[in-house]
Write a protein that binds this DNA or RNA. Structure first.
Length: 876
RNA sequence: AGGCCCUUAGCUCAGCUGGUUAGAGCGCUACCUUGACACGGUAGAGGUCAGCGGUUCGAGUCCGCUAGGGCCUACCA
């Protein structure tokens, strides 16, 4: 035998050593073999911007559970890891670092800045890898990818060119969401809306040639400098007469038309008059186009006022300009009122600055033709979303999808593969063109915009496999099987992968999507630095071990939010400790190695052994079933209760007398050791996907054939291990033991006091069982003897347990008040239940309509209740 | 405004196609240092399943309404 397990469970002692053992053994790497059934999955690539948080710990734990389970179940398994260049996020972080050093990115220029990011990226990539390794992620690091790798970049250019040639990518001047802080356009879904209490300003616009004024409400008075019309509803009686007249725009003193627009104006809302600012509001932009209104840009791309806004406003920050406009309106007595107003404001999710709608020239993907097949794929079942309720959200978004703004005015990312020749012609091609096909010019400048990060991550499942080349990896491992990710990136990422995958590979990139919930604190609140409830996974791993963290995450993953707190982790850390100690106990007695252990002779097993094998078989069945439907919580819970509640609490206690030589023969002992080894081995293999480190550390001591538990076969349920008789009899023994312990505690006896237990068995087979296995009752219920089918003396406490009449003979008749009250309550409860059962069984509708087993169950229960009531009444 | 989801023990949650006595973890109470484990063992207390109505022989589970909460999308002059 190998050296023994350490006395204390201390994960820090072995987790990193074990990970190195796996990695050097090459167990994470699948074979390149087209014949073997495969299972493949790609990681949602973390951003290269920093430390992994608890959400990463969750998503990667879940993936690793599935991956280890599939690998052990015989699949040629690939888990492909990697990182995302995360355009804006990464550029922002590096920019900030430079600023701390007193350097502006504009000082060093694009090329140098991008070099800086690459340096920074390289360092963080390895940190991310290390952190995933600490978690136990069995990803194939030999295939690690990065979205800016040469191969992946080629895939991006290829897709861009094909979409352009198909007319699905176009360049246009349009109103987009602009972040004045990041100085780039962003797409609609990158805008987050925040409820905010602002002000609603009522501004009077004098009508030219009259004394009448039209009052307009706005939350953004500074944009009035760019107004080019006022609008009313054509059917609004109040304003019919002013349509076609002109109003004076205050401050700017420009004349603007009063127009009618039924789309823009809701006569029920506010004053029914709207100011129209085509350059700085989405709806006004559309209205401007409908009515041929001029566009006046008064705010620039940095959020400052332009010269168009007027001399005294030029260069002012938009919020400063707001104050100044309000002040001037007040002075001119044109401010009709100000009130607090709660509305939602669009901010850029990455930097939290207010979005500025802005007209600019951008690249777009015409998305509707891509969305249609992606909707169909989910609708016809080619892709299954779990939990299914997310499908509604998916359809709702996909069916109302808007064109995707893909260009970003950043330096970090995939540069748009469009080239402009000296004569202004545009050439879109994967490589820089030699000559312009239109004019023959050989001088080109490449588009400076880069692509939205999600454009490249949308190709992730196949670009990482070598596509557009038909590489062996692509042919073997694509499409992938499952995608596991958070619901928060359903639109950003999942939907885009489906659209691109279908269009370019002709296949759905995965057949199942599991969307997990958000990790929250133990009270269900969002984790945030300001609340101080953030749990750092690496700290947890250092304190409690990766296995405890993983198990806690798994057993709380239901498809909704996942509450996580210190006390929970402590609870499952106790479980890992329990596994450790139970294994230590087992290893003290086990004296053969797995690889040389003799076959178990099924016919020679004791009932206790048949029972535990039947139980682990049921657990095995349950775990496999639940893993296949992503019920990580159920699978983990089953293992928890099997190992602790059945294996430790009952089985180990039941075999102790045999192992310690207090009961049975040497043969019995040898067989008990063999079964103990069997159950421990199966348990460790079952538990391995959830807690890979501790199971490996222990399993190594068992001397198995395989070099690692991670490549040992995952147990599958076997029908011949099911044993209803053993479950019935051992179940009865357990209930009897509990009943005796209960009576002992309630009558105030100590564990040293011994009693006699009488058991009545209706048939000889059961009677023989109780005679042969009386040592179980004697030992675990602390009895002096068990009498089978003998008449119990008067005064014994009678009961019916699991269908057997029992009687406990106490050394003296001690009945406490507690006991009397309890018996009364028990009798009353049983009588109530009996009454309702009687009524039920008397009802023909029930006996006729209910399934036979339900009726039979009710009848059996009635018989037991009657017997029990009779016995309990004798105790009074 | 539209959609999705939630309301079950003190706390956080399970309860799969409706079927015996509604479960778990943590917390709580009492007892126990028994030769794997006090990160332990044994026993126990604790629930009108948000409310109302309906379908059914039977509802925590299905349907409708009401109240409260969360999330997403759209809009907000």
């Amino acid at each position: 035998m190998k050296e023994e397990l350490a006395t204390r469970y201390n994960p820090v002692d072995f987790e990193q050593r074990i990970y190195a053992f796996w990695e050097s053994g090459g167990y994470f790497t699948p074979v390149v073999d087209r014949e073997r059934p495969k299972f493949s999955i790609v990681i949602p690539p973390p951003n290269v911007t920093g430390r992994l948080h608890i959400g990463h710990a969750l998503v990667n734990t879940l993936q690793d559970i599935v991956v280890r389970w599939k690998r052990m179940s015989g699949y040629n398994t690939l888990w492909l890891p990697g990182t995302d260049h995360a355009g804006i996020a990464t550029q922002m972080v590096v920019d900030r670092k430079l600023t701390e050093r007193g350097i502006s990115r504009f000082d060093i220029g694009r090329e140098k800045f991008v070099e800086e990011i690459w340096k920074w990226k390289e360092q963080h990539r390895s940190e991310i890898k290390d952190q995933l390794a600490r978690l136990g992620a069995s990803a194939d690091w030999r295939r690690e990818r990065f979205t800016l790798d040469e191969n992946l970049s080629r895939a991006v250019r290829h897709v861009f060119v094909r979409l352009y040639e198909d007319g699905l990518i176009y360049r246009d001047i349009a109103m987009v969401n602009w972040c004045p802080f990041c100085r780039t356009a962003i797409s609609d879904i990158e805008v987050e809306y925040r409820e905010r209490t602002g002000k609603l300003y009522n501004i009077d616009y004098p009508i030219e040639g009259t004394t009448r004024r039209l009052t307009v409400a706005t939350t953004r008075p500074e944009t009035m400098l760019g107004d080019t019309a006022l609008a009313v509803h054509p059917d609004d009686e109040r304003y019919k007469d002013v349509i076609g007249q002109t109003a004076t725009l205050p401050i700017a003193n420009r004349q603007i038309p009063i127009i009618a627009d039924p789309i823009l104006v809701d006569p029920e809302f506010g004053t029914g008059v709207v100011k129209v600012t085509p350059s700085h509001d989405k709806n006004d932009y559309e209205a401007g186009k409908r009515n041929n209104l001029p566009q006046l840009q008064v705010i620039d791309e940095t959020g400052h006022m332009t010269s168009v806004a007027g001399k005294e406003f030029e260069g002012l920050d938009r919020f400063e300009a707001r104050k100044k406009v309000v002040q001037q309106l007040e002075e001119q007595r044109l401010l009709a009122g100000v009130k607090d107003y709660v509305h939602s404001v669009g901010v850029h999710g990455k930097c939290d600055n207010d979005i500025e709608p802005m007209i600019s020239r951008q690249w777009f993907v015409k998305i509707e033709p891509l969305a249609r097949p992606a909707i169909d794929a989910v609708r016809n079942g080619a892709i299954e979303i779990v939990p299914q309720s997310w499908e509604a959200t998916y359809f709702n978004w996909m069916e109302n999808i808007h064109d995707w703004t893909i260009s970003r005015q950043l330096w970090w990312g995939h540069r748009v593969p469009a080239y402009y020749c000296a004569n202004g012609h545009t050439v879109v091609s994967e490589e820089e063109p030699k000559a312009c096909p239109e004019c023959g010019s050989e001088s080109f400048t490449q588009e400076t915009d880069v692509l939205d990060t999600w454009f490249s991550s949308g190709l992730w499942p196949f670009s990482t496999m070598g596509w557009p080349e038909k590489t062996p990896d692509y042919e073997i491992f694509y499409p992938t099987d499952v995608l596991i990710t958070g619901f928060d990136i359903l639109f950003f990422w999942v939907a885009r992968m489906i659209m691109f995958g279908l269009r370019f590979t002709g296949k759905a990139p995965f057949s199942q999507v599991f969307l997990h919930g958000l990790v929250r604190d133990e009270h269900g609140d969002k984790m945030s630095k300001s609340k101080g409830n953030v749990i750092d996974p690496i700290t947890v791993i250092e304190e409690s071990g990766a296995d405890a963290l993983r198990f806690t995450l798994a057993i709380n993953t239901t498809g909704r939010d996942i509450p996580l707190g210190k006390s929970r982790i402590a609870g499952y850390s106790a479980f890992v400790n329990k596994i450790w100690n139970a294994s230590r106990f087992a290893l003290m007695h086990i004296d053969v190695e797995l690889k040389s252990a003799p076959q178990i002779d099924r016919d020679a097993l004791s009932i206790v052994e048949r029972w535990i094998l039947s139980r682990i078989n049921a657990a095995t069945n349950d775990v496999n079933k639940n893993l296949s439907i992503f019920r990580f919580d159920e699978a983990a819970s089953t293992l928890y209760h099997f190992f602790w509640g059945e294996f430790c609490d009952w089985y180990i206690e039941m075999v102790k007398p045999v192992l310690l030589g207090k009961h049975g023969s040497e043969d019995d002992k040898r067989r008990a050791k063999r079964v103990l080894l069997e159950v421990l081995d199966r348990s460790l293999r079952l538990l391995h996907p959830f807690m890979p480190f501790v199971t490996e550390e222990i399993w190594q001591k068992l001397g198995g054939v395989e070099p690692s538990v991670m490549v040992a076969p995952y147990p599958v349920a076997e029908e011949f291990l099911e044993d209803p008789e053993a479950e019935r009899l051992i179940g009865a023994v357990q209930q009897m033991i509990t009943t005796v312990r209960n009576a002992r505690a309630e009558r105030g006896f100590t564990p040293k006091d011994r009693f006699t237990l009488h058991v009545n068995a209706a048939n000889e087979r059961d009677a023989n069982f109780f005679r042969a296995y009386s040592y179980l009752l004697n030992d675990l219920a602390r009895l002096d003897s068990v009498r089978v089918n003998e008449t119990a003396p008067a005064g014994a406490q009678q009961d019916v347990v699991a269908g057997f009449e029992i009687a406990i003979v106490f050394p003296e008749k001690v009945i406490t008040q507690e006991q009397i009250g309890r018996t009364k309550r028990e009798i009353e409860k049983s009588k109530n239940e009996l009454a309702s059962l009687d009524a039920k069984l008397a009802n023909e509708q029930f006996t006729k309509n209910a399934p036979p087993q339900v009726v039979q169950g009710a009848e059996a229960r009635r018989i037991e209740l009657r017997a029990r009531i009779e016995k309990l009444e004798q105790n009074q």
